[in-house]
Amino acid sequence: MTPGTNTMNNNDTILKVEHLSMRFGGLMAIDDFSFEARRGNITALIGPNGAGKTTVFNCITGFYKPTMGMITLKQRDGDHYLLERLRDFEITKIAKVSRTFQNIRLFSGLTVLENLLVAQHNALMKASGYTILGLLGMPAYTKASAAAIDKAKYWLDKANLTERADDPAGDLPYGGQRRLEIARAMCTGPELLCLDEPAAGLNPRESAALNTLLHSIRDDGASILLIEHDMSVVMEISDHVVVLEYGQKISDGTPDHVKNDPKVIAAYLGVEDDEVEQIEEQLDEGRI
């Protein structure tokens, strides 16, 4: 398999990041970073600590405004959106990109079901005629709220949380909270789901459950972009891996390609630049 091509689904691009730069004062957190994510793929963004992965995420999802660069999202129906021009909530509402957070951000005092209903806020808001028709008890709103509960049930089932639907979200175990956050992001009806370290802190069993959930999300038609530290998770589930170090892209391709890229090995093992060639030689000889 050559880098850059993929056998899954089509080769349609969903997210295109071009020359993205983000500067915090004197620090260049991301420096001229470009990559593409293809529709129907699980794209992983990896790199050592402090490489700028979460910063890239925050730029894509509008929590930071990039200093330079263009982020284009192409929807299924062909519409293009320039994400750096949208406000953060519009990126979810209009461009249909949703995200989760590295440190889980659930509405811990609301029940699991309510968390999933809040995620459908915009659709329900429209159906309730911006609250006015809903207050009058119009049938359109009743129907919409029933549909919202059905959608929530669907994702509860997928995330294996149906039993806990009426418990407060803060009461779930850690793995359940991770899955609920992903289910909540899916309830906004995204085309691209951005996950910030979904497997962090999970035990092997929860990790396996997460992989199943991510695969079923991809098979449902949403594309996934994820940051991950756990190499076993990355190698197992992603179709395409982009490696970031010190704000710059050092490798881009299939998991197998990236795994054997000497630059990546150097970045992860902390080898001096001039030793990279040496390692490459060793690789060729099959010693590593």
């Binding site: 909530f89 519009e90 979810t92 995200r99 509405f107 005092g109 995620a119 806020h121 909540r184």
Partner: peptide, 14 residues
Amino acid sequence: EALREDEIACRSLG
């Protein structure tokens, strides 16, 4: 109520 619980999460949900 979601806003009371977590404003950033609200924005991430559109």
